[in-house]
Design a protein around this nucleic acid. Structure first.
Lengths: 105, 105
DNA sequence: TTGACGTGATACCTTTTGGTATCGTATATG
DNA sequence: CATATACGATACCAAAAGGTATCACGTCAA
């Protein structure tokens, strides 16, 4: 569960990121999601499967419909990974600051 | 410059993410990077090109070598995009808190 | 100058990915 | 029941992605 690859993979596609933004706030059926794109419902379904594989959405069956709900918590591994570089940013900023200070004198 | 797709694309591959971690702190030539993987130098070169396209590394020619240097600032668009969901997380947390409070009474 | 070395570039291959078309199945609804 | 609806599942296709092999070229060193 701590392999971030499926999450990074899911976020790598523009359509999938757009779907996530679309799901922010309200859950939607597959057909509802598909209405907002120019690709077929089957293609949307595939994207939703990738998103589900990454844990970024949860799917609940209700009657003949499937409600796709955003699970933003699944983005945590990505944020954690990015945070791995925070120290480096600080270093760069510190170096920059030092350089500026030195330049002042 | 504000299209985050190349950055997301660059981060989507495990090898490329490993390269970025490897470049944290010190710059490396293509051959040096390649030494740490079981794939050919040409394949590494391709990965470095993708990373460069995403702005995640800068390449400086020095003699017959190419020094690849991490440019962590380029990850900012990803962080910005993720931050787009912060409010949603807060909502979830607030709802959870409310639920807990309600449960207490 | 003559090699050895680090790299760029190209051609080529296999697998994955994003997409469509089609058919089957379960579920509402008249 | 009969039928439209919302999906799932396949099969299939073109393009992109990840990889190797190979050769050409600039650069360093003896």
């Amino acid at each position: 569960m701590d392999n971030p690859q499926p999450v990074f993979r899911a976020l790598a596609d523009t359509t999938r990121r757009d779907i996530l933004v679309m799901l922010r706030g309200r859950e939607m059926t597959i057909a509802e999601v598909a209405e907002n794109f120019d690709i077929t419902r089957a293609a949307i379904k595939k994207h939703l499967t990738v998103l589900s594989d990454g844990g970024l959405i949860t799917v609940e069956a209700r009657g003949r419909e499937r409600l796709n709900r955003l699970n933003a918590e699944a983005m945590a591994p990505v944020q954690d990974w990015l945070r791995f570089f925070d120290a480096f940013w600080d270093d760069r900023l510190a170096a920059l600051k030092t350089a500026i200070e030195k330049d002042k004198t």
